[in-house]
Write a protein that binds this DNA or RNA. Structure first.
Length: 201
DNA sequence: GCTCTTGTTACACCGACTAA
DNA sequence: TTAGTCGGTGTAACAAGAGC
C-alpha cells in the first residue's frame, strides 16, 4: 500500500535541511481537468521544470496540519487551500500532499475517516499539541506564504499573457522539427533582445 | 456514457550528504 | 575536490467513484 514516498519520509527524518528557494510552478497538469489539456505534447513522465523548493524540508507538514486544524479536509481540498494561501503562486502536487498526509497520520497528528471514496483528515489532540509547540514556525510559514501571495499579485495579466505567448511560440517552434542554424540564431537573438528589453524596462 | 473529482503511483530532477 | 548515493519534491499517468 505505501509507496516510495512514504518510505522516503521514514528514511531520513531530518528537519530543516536543504536550501530554501522560491518556487512557483506553472501549474501545468496540476488539476485533473487541466491536466488532460495540459499534457498535450508531453511525452514521458516527470519532465516538469523544477525551480527550487517553496518549503523547507518538513515545512509543508506544518502548513497542512494547520489547515486541517482550521477545517477537516481531504487531500484535494488541501492542495487548493495551500494554493489559495500562497495566492496561486505555489500549489503542492499530489505526490507531495499525499505522502505528507500519510506521514501525519502515522505520527498520530491526524485521523482519517473514509466516506464516499474520499479520505477526510481531521486533526487529533496530538496534532494540536504539535502545532502549539511549533506555533512560531507555523506563523512564520503563513506569513511567508502571504508575502509570496502579495508578490505574485504584482504580476499583471498582461505580463502573464505575454509570457505564455512566448512559451507557446517557442514550444511550437522547437517541436515542429529540426531547426536550421539560421533559425536557431534568429530565435536566440530574439530571446536575448527580449531579455535586454525586460532588464531595461 | 461522458466528464469531473479524488486518490495513488511511477519516475525524473535537484540538492545535500558522504566516502574516497 | 569529486563522484556516488540518498532523500525530497515535482509532474504525469492512471484508476475508481460521483454526478450529469
Amino acid at each position: 500500500m505505501f509507496g516510495r514516498h512514504h518510505h522516503h519520509f521514514h528514511g531520513r527524518h531530518a528537519f530543516g535541511r536543504g536550501p530554501f528557494g522560491f518556487h512557483g510552478h506553472d501549474r501545468e497538469g496540476f488539476g485533473r481537468g487541466e491536466g488532460r489539456e495540459g499534457r498535450e505534447g508531453f511525452r514521458g513522465r516527470g519532465r516538469g521544470g523544477r525551480m527550487g523548493r517553496f518549503f523547507e524540508q518538513g515545512d509543508l507538514r506544518f502548513v497542512v496540519l494547520k489547515l486541517i486544524a482550521e477545517k477537516p479536509a481531504h487531500g484535494y481540498e488541501l492542495i487548493k487551500a495551500v494554493e489559495e494561501a500562497a495566492g496561486g503562486a505555489y500549489a503542492p502536487s499530489p505526490g507531495v500532499i499525499y505522502p505528507t498526509l500519510t506521514l501525519l497520520e502515522d505520527l498520530g497528528y491526524v485521523s482519517v475517516s473514509e466516506g464516499g471514496g474520499r479520505k477526510l483528515y481531521t486533526i487529533t489532540p496530538e496534532g494540536e499539541a504539535y502545532l502549539a509547540d511549533n506555533q512560531p514556525m507555523v506563523s512564520g510559514l503563513f506569513d511567508r506564504m502571504a508575502q509570496v501571495a502579495a508578490a505574485s499579485a504584482a504580476f499583471s495579466p498582461q505580463i502573464l499573457r505575454a509570457r505564455e505567448n512566448l512559451k507557446t511560440a517557442l514550444r511550437l517552434k522547437l517541436t515542429a522539427g529540426a531547426l536550421t542554424a539560421e533559425q536557431v540564431k534568429a530565435i536566440a537573438d530574439a530571446l536575448d533582445a527580449a531579455a535586454q528589453a525586460v532588464e531595461q524596462a
